[in-house]
Design a protein around this nucleic acid. Structure first.
Lengths: 226, 226
DNA sequence: AAGGGTTTGTTGCCATAGCTACAAACGCCT
DNA sequence: AGGCGTTTGTAGCTATGGCAACAAACCCTT
């Protein structure tokens, strides 16, 4: 059954066999809820007791700011989860709202049952995965703010490209995001960013075409990125 | 024994009774290690298998950046812990170094034992505390970057003060940090920040003396903070 | 291939905030 | 009370980057 495929894509069930997941589900008493397009799946500020894993459809995530403005915070696709942080807080208040952008099915995992699980052979594995998920999230957010802390435009751009180079090992990096998204991620204005990128191209440091960037002067780039 | 007092201060042992902690320790096989002033307690980039809880003395935390420069990241006091995130990562590599600023004693909790713990009555409580610690950290980092994302100086300052007001409910807020620390937190230069604070004082929005700030015009402040 | 919507490149102007430098106030310590 | 180190206030200059506006290229769709 294809639900299994999606569940296995989820980080919480990494290293689980199909059979194990089935057994686990009986223990956890997970339930599947269907939402039709436009329905609110979770409302900011309400309490949640379960981790939600999206099985089908898409959800849009957004927050309502104190002045009433809505801020989009991206889209959830099959296998993604929500509430996985908040459910472990004391107040259990979810910090964003999720709305079904198309008909969707959500698998809910009651954390209470996870914590109360007996000494099953899978309990440890599941627990490790949950802990790893949270720990990785902390590292990821920390990584994001590395860019926010940088003050100069050139430094931000260089670090983004250089980090991608370190990650891939090639001089021909691909960012996978467009200029707008890149500017948003670095928290700068797109024209200013483009301007600086062009300067760097003029100086022979990089070359670019869409989201594909060629590093021409790695030494200089590294120097700026540091 | 006073070690118990410090351990109870630690977030992981919230809601634990003295007796419970003692039992727990026998199960967990925690060990206490002493470090003398100047010794490296944990080195950036090395693997750790245990959460460290500082029992006495102080540790300084710092990271070595790619260009070799050291960046101080604050001080750990009794009851604080380290490695509590990294120990749950796959690679288990600790991202900062910790050095004893004075003679120190550290209690190590092997996470392997925590995960392998049998169905003791305390397992669930400990697990909940660990999960809550990580979840709270995620929320806290997210909160920090709210300030980093803001572009205007005035907006940053106003939000910091306004948030503190929401937190305390009073118009006479106390930040608990000096100008340098405040500027560093907001990721701006101190003189520029002071300049803007003075402007806001001239406009009758706030008044301040050291880290004590009086809100004179809450309406205007809220407006700016949004 | 035409056309409309989106993404990217490009420019100029200007407000903002960084930086250096110094003055003033404060807080300890003896 | 004097003095030294630290924190805070203040000013001027300048580089930086935001923003609006537009041009060019691109990409679908029909």
């Amino acid at each position: 059954m294809k639900i299994l495929r999606l569940i296995k894509k989820n980080r919480l069930f990494e290293n689980f066999e199909d059979k194990e997941i089935n057994v686990l589900f009986d223990n956890l008493k997970g339930r599947i809820v269907k939402f039709s397009r436009g329905m609110i799946v979770a409302a900011q500020g309400t309490q949640i007791e379960e981790i939600g894993i999206l099985l089908s459809g898409t959800l849009v995530k957004f927050i309502v700011k104190s002045d009433g403005a809505r801020e989009a915070q991206g889209t959830l696709l099959g296998g993604d989860m929500f509430g996985d942080t908040e459910v472990f807080l004391k107040d259990k208040l979810i910090r964003a709202s999720y709305v079904a952008a198309e008909d969707a099915a959500v698998l809910y995992l009651p954390t209470e049952h996870i914590l109360n699980m007996g000494d099953s052979p899978y309990r440890k594995k599941l627990m490790e995965n949950i802990l790893a998920t949270l720990a990785e999230k902390i590292i990821a957010i920390g990584k994001d703010s590395e860019y926010l802390i940088i003050k100069s435009m050139r430094h931000k751009i260089a670090k983004l490209i250089y980090d991608k180079h370190l990650e891939t090992g090639v001089l021909n990096v691909e960012l996978g995001i467009n200029r707008n998204e890149m500017a948003e991620y670095l928290n700068v204005s797109r024209p200013s960013m483009s301007r600086e990128m062009m300067r760097m191209r003029d100086e022979g440091i990089i070359d670019f075409w869409k989201d594909k960037i060629t590093i021409n002067d790695l030494v200089k780039l590294r120097e700026i990125a540091k």
